[in-house]
Amino acid sequence: MRKLKFKNYKLSEKLFILFIHIFLLLFGVICIFPFFNVLARSLSPEFYIQQGQVWLWPIRLTVNAYVKIFQAMGIVSGFKNSTFVAIVGTAINLIMSFLIAYPLSRKRLPLRKTFIFIVVFTMLFPTGIIPMYLLVKKLGLMNSLWALIWPYAITTFNMIIIKNYFQTIPESLEESAFIDGAGELTILFKIFVPLSKPVISAIGLFYLIFNWNIFMPAVFFITHPSKYTIQVVLRDILTQHMLEDQLPFDQASLMSLAGPEAIQAAVTILAMIPILIIYPFIQKYFTRGMMIGSVKG
């Protein structure tokens, strides 16, 4: 196997590679700057942030904001609830997405175009929150964590990407499997899913993020504090530490409320951490060449 080596490149290629690196580095700096700013804020006393002094480095390092968050009520149950929704939810998301993406990706599926149409239609015409509220109530899901899972069991956008990838897998593969006596489910889970690891891990990541960050449905469908997800609990802590003389119930500023900024920054960092821990494990599936010679009929 011949390896690409930088020194074998022509000058124009070398210059281009150099350009790529500078470009990525610059863009990386733009992307990481807010993160460091938020991190520095989360580790500084409120006072210095209000004074506008905190940029990239904490002033008078303190973990006070984190301590306050961990002392708050409902953090443990919130974490438990969110973990449940994230794990069970993502599993259901993926399984259900496979079960529809696979048939839709196969030309031999009867009524295929109609089905795709039915599915794509739901992406363009979103479901209103009021009928969803009534539906969840009618199904008896109100105040249950399942209300955060079943109504969002499939994100059509994600499912389409999986379907699109499945489509690139040649039909000859399943034909030979059929001859070996395999059923549809076996083909799906034994051949298609393993062959699509990069895409599936990317979509799995997206689903995981969605489930972990789920907020508005939790506000609408969960009424008892013991079932709040972590995002609701964190938002609650934020409001607790909000500037008190926001006029009581100031309509104009509810959306943009920024609490004391250290807490808000700490909340951001904490909500980010679980995903950032998982990301590197998933990232290894995005490496070029990991699927060497996999798709061969």
């Binding site: 990317a202 060449g289 699927m291 060497i292 010679g293």
Partner: peptide, 16 residues
């Protein structure tokens, strides 16, 4: 991420 995942699926042998 989506594009990187798609690129990971491109057969390396074609590159070679």
């Amino acid at each position: 991420v989506i594009y990187m995942a798609a690129l990971a699926g491109v057969d390396e042998e074609i590159f070679e």
